[in-house]
Design a protein around this nucleic acid. Structure first.
Lengths: 223, 223, 223, 223
DNA sequence: AATGAATGAGCCTTCATTCAT
DNA sequence: AATGAATGAAGGCTCATTCAT
């Protein structure tokens, strides 16, 4: 018996249909077409199951044209993942910057909201970013990994400050980080615009979940 | 700057090293060797990036031997995923059966614990099961999907019963399901036996997180 | 526009459906089942496009069983071709033996009739015999070729005797042999029992064609 | 005992050595080299027994080069067969067009001559065209079959007109079509330029055979 | 004879990439 | 930049055949 709560309504990697790259970040011309096509196919089928020919057919360019814009298929993926982590980090920073003098609880809430919203809005990007990083070579992955770790540090530090505040009651801060990070990351796989919930609503709810998970008490003290 | 809270310590899909298939489920002989080799490589590199020759080299059999046990590479994956979902469902059911007359809160706790422990103990299996299902054809995925949905229904129904109990305060039950399911699912990617935490400890903590997330109050009424 | 005279009503090598090996020649048991299955598949698909597995599936025996009866796939074909040429030669000889004291014209008629009837009755055998002999190795083909050449000699000698008789008027005896042999050989490809003509009728008509082709005059002298 | 009349002097599918594709029809460059190599090997060994590697070695190109000119091995065969039937039909039409106002007898003679000459000159093409069509899939064979049937219709209609003319005496027009078509078709298997007979001579003789077979009387009336 | 597993060569085809134009 | 042809490695898979049982 199938309940209305099923989390995997179909056999696709990502529920969302629409694209794709953050506005203002997509390059013009063939380069942009290639990146968007590659992102779409990597998200739906996976990097290993997508050929250069597939990408170029989707982008409506010649196969060799790809090689005048990128040195290899791997570096197409690298650029996409780079874009993904960069945009993600930018949003986290932006969210933090708007409440940097407020209590840790406010900061945590803002971070989780930004985390979730970006996974809703750029779900394909997030799926690729989170599932295909292992396809990059060690040298290629290094700068990308640095950005990812920076994002994690941001959340980790806020969690640390929260845990030092008596309004929270955290049994294991590392596991809390894993749990909060993980629940947000999964949003990219199931969210799609027609699901009946707005990104902001999901974000608010998940921020609430994060607060609860951290054991916040109902009458907070000043941070 | 890397903090001690980083969730992705290296560029691999799955942190765990060890294998692999649930005891008692692994077939004898070449068939079992092939399944374990394939599981390991699919988990580390992905299905698309693993060749039949790779699997057979790892399993120390001839490539043609694989084809006397499986009709295709896809059906090797299918069997692994089937095993994964079946074992997962078996554990959820077992956990539930041991508290079927208890309050929903107890049941939720038991389910989350089973969910997490199985993602710790069979992390490779869980990673493959959760990230490569899209590589199966429609016909092949159908029976597997049915098992997955059965597992989800189990958790969904318990959440539903919890939400109808006044000791819980759930803003959105569907999102709660996504959050709790998602945080457990991600465990497979980062957990490894030498991380300093036992599966039981992680499971207890995540069960606690789930309770909190569901807004449980501190003096529960009988379910 | 398709006329009712079209010679290739469908894309198959041989029009006939039914089998197969001459009665009394088919071995008992697995050996016979294998030969008949192989003949059928070689006729319909060709030797190169038929696998040992295909043959064994059709014959409902194990793959290895074939190898306890035949040393190789090639020698299955060799046996079939051998059977085909042997039966063909037997029939030509039998036909000749019944008119050995009659005029060459009678002998030619009898030979053409036997040639055509055997191509009607064992059309699958004839198709394989005539189109797959090149698949045999030099050593294997030698004894088979000898039988074939014996059959041809039979017809060639009768034609020669006819041409020396003044009731015939043959411009080129070698070409007459090719023409008469060739028109009979093609019968195996298009004849099928439900075509509305009996083998005897076709044989009589082709014998008449052969006579005409040899330029027979209407008041024959004694041979 | 081998007579000088033997029709199968050696174990090959086709007696002729030389090539191959009609002048003016062979494409330039690698495509043409591949077609000629494939034709030669298909004729000598059969389609099923010829690998893509064989073709490419013979054509002195890389195996992948074949795939930038043809979608598959099957479509190499399809193109060859298409060329064969097209050229054959073209020659029949050309022959007919030069005697379209003459008596049916003249037309029959012209058709048989064209039929035979094209089987002498392009014997490899004819052998492949006539023996490997069954290797094509249903969809691929359809347009090719249409051309073949058009050629057959041409001959069938002329035979029909002949049979309605009192100078002919045809016992069974359908069998006459089979016989005349079949004897010409077999020419491709045994004719070779050094056999001591020119294509024209063979063609004239077979045209004579065809007339006799149709029961022509020796003092024809105007058609 | 018959079986089930295994073998090594080879199948057709596609891959990411390069090069001369 | 863009093109069409070409390249060498590797892809998944099937082949005819063998062997221990």
């Amino acid at each position: 018996m199938k309940t209305s709560l099923s989390t995997f309504p179909q056999n696709r990697r990502v529920a969302a249909e629409a694209v794709i790259l953050p506005i203002g970040v997509t390059p013009k011309g063939a380069r942009g077409k290639i990146l968007n096509a590659a992102l779409r196919l990597f998200a739906l089928r996976g990097y290993g199951a997508t050929s250069v020919r597939d990408i170029c057919k989707e982008a409506k360019v010649q196969t060799t044209t790809l090689y005048s814009h990128f040195p290899s298929k791997e570096l197409v993926l690298a650029e996409i993942i780079q874009l993904g982590h960069t945009e993600h980090l930018r949003r986290l920073r932006e969210a933090l910057s708007q409440c940097e003098h407020q209590a840790p609880a406010e900061q945590l809430s803002a971070l989780v909201r930004a985390h979730v919203i970006s996974h809703c809005e750029y779900s394909m990007l997030a799926v690729v970013t989170n599932t295909e990083m292992h396809a990059l070579s060690d040298d290629t992955v290094r700068p990308v990994m640095a950005i990812l770790q920076e994002s994690e540090s941001l959340l980790g530090e806020v969690l640390l400050r929260c845990s030092q505040n008596s309004i929270f009651d955290v049994p294991d801060i590392e596991l809390a980080l894993r749990a909060i990070g993980g629940m947000g990351m999964r949003v990219a796989f199931w969210y799609e615009p027609n699901c009946g919930k707005t990104p902001e609503y999901v974000a608010d709810t998940f921020a609430n979940f994060a607060m609860r998970l951290m054991g916040i008490t109902h009458d907070p003290q000043p941070g």
